[in-house]
Amino acid sequence: MKKEDSEIHIFFIFWGPSEAGKTTALEYIYNNVPFLKKGELIKIEDEKGSTMMFDFVPFVILPEDEKSKVQVLFHCYTVPGQEQYSDRRAIVLEQVKYADGFIFVADSQMTRIKDNLESYKELKKLTKKILGKEIGKDLPMVVFINKRDLPNAAPVYLIKKIFDHADAFFETVAPRGIGIIEGFKKISELVLLRLLRELGEEE
C-alpha cells in the first residue's frame, strides 16, 4: 500500500502457471467495471496472446460520501506464467514493491497439478526473498481454482492440497466470469481489513 495525500493505492498480483487464466480473469473484472472507474488495460503479450511480461490496470474507487476526499486506487498486475520467465516474475515483484495481496489462478486440469505446485512454491520463495513477506502470514492470498468446466478437471480437494496458506478458494470459469468477481471482492476485503487494522481505523 502507498498513501499519497488524498489517495490510497492498493496493489494486487495475479499469479499462477502459464495458460491458467490470469489475464482472462483480470479482463473479466475489467469488463465489469464501469468506464469512469478504470484506467487503460495494458497487456504485454505475444502474437498468441501469452503474457510476455505483465498486464496492468488501475481501478479508481470514488468516495460515495461527497465530504470524503479519499480516493482508493486498486492497481492490478499479472505475471507471465511460462516456466522460463522466472526472471520476469521476479522483476514484476520488484517493481510492485507495495504488493498487498495475491490471486493465485490455478489450472484445474489433472495434467497441470505439478505446474500449480511449482508456481506456488516459486511465489512463496520470491515473496520472501524480494518483499521480505510471507504468503498467508503477511500477504493475503485467494485461489481461483480455474477451468472447472473442463472434463479433465481434477477434484477440488486435490488442488486445495497444494496450498498450505490460502485465505479462500473459489471455483472459477474465467471466460464466463464464474466465481471471478466474488473472488476479487474477497481478496480486496482481506487486504482492506488488514490495512484498516494497520491504520487503526477499523470500523
Binding site: 511480461m53 505483465f54 496492468f56 479508481v60 480516493q71 517493481q95
Partner: peptide, 28 residues
C-alpha cells in the same frame, strides 16, 4: 535479447504506473 527486453519492459511498467492511474482518476 532477454536482458534488453526486460530493461525496456521495466521502463514500460514504470511509465504505465505513472500515466494510466492519472488518466483513470481524471475521468470523473
Amino acid at each position: 535479447d532477454n536482458a534488453f527486453f526486460n530493461t525496456v519492459m521495466v521502463e514500460t511498467m514504470k511509465r504505465a504506473q505513472q500515466l494510466i492511474p492519472k488518466s483513470g482518476a481524471l475521468k470523473s
